[in-house]
Amino acid sequence: MNATPALVILIAAIVTNNILLANFLGMCSFLACSRQIDTALGLGAAVIFVLTCTTVINHVIYHMVLVPWQMEYLQFIVFIAVIAAFVQFVEMFVERFTPVLYYALGIFLPLITVNCAILGASLFMIIRDYTLAQSAGFGLGAGLGWALAIALMAGIRQKMGYSDVPRPFQGVAIAMVVTGVMAMAFMGFAGMVDIQ
């Protein structure tokens, strides 16, 4: 059993073990949707919500259903199904109650289904043997960390509108370079809190 308090796990998941900048999960939507600050923030908010909820739901399902029936080998497929179903539910909910946000997010909302950070968080939670409270803290922290990273990236990319990037480096290449330097900077927090 992991003894780290849930609050520490939350903070660590934002800064020291940032799911994007330390584990490099969720890169695809990070690179694709970070051109504008508003879109990036919308997607970040959606990821925070989905990550927190699916981590908790997956924790319950894993320990209430899969472990008692000794079906842990099904975890991948079950987790993916839960995430897909949950994103569907969120999509319908958002469309019904806040159509403005729904149209602002567009295709990015269903794309959260295939964001590897979401599945990654559920798997980390199993590997690190978190309790329910810890899982909730980790899910929320990982979501906040991901949203922070994409917001920073969007800011930098907006500023880079003034840059004169050489042709071979335009587009995804320069975004990867920036992500690399951001990850190096975030290494400064390494060793501050250990959540392993």
């Binding site: 600050i37 920073l152 800011g155 930098i156 900077a185 400064g188 390494a190 060793g191």
Partner: peptide, 24 residues
């Protein structure tokens, strides 16, 4: 609190990262 004895380099690089969105 972090594992490094010195943090000036990391602090400035981190704030370089935060600058664009802060300015915005």
């Amino acid at each position: 609190f972090a594992g490094w004895p010195e943090g000036t380099m990391f602090a400035i690089l981190l704030m370089n990262t935060f600058n664009p969105i802060m300015d915005h």
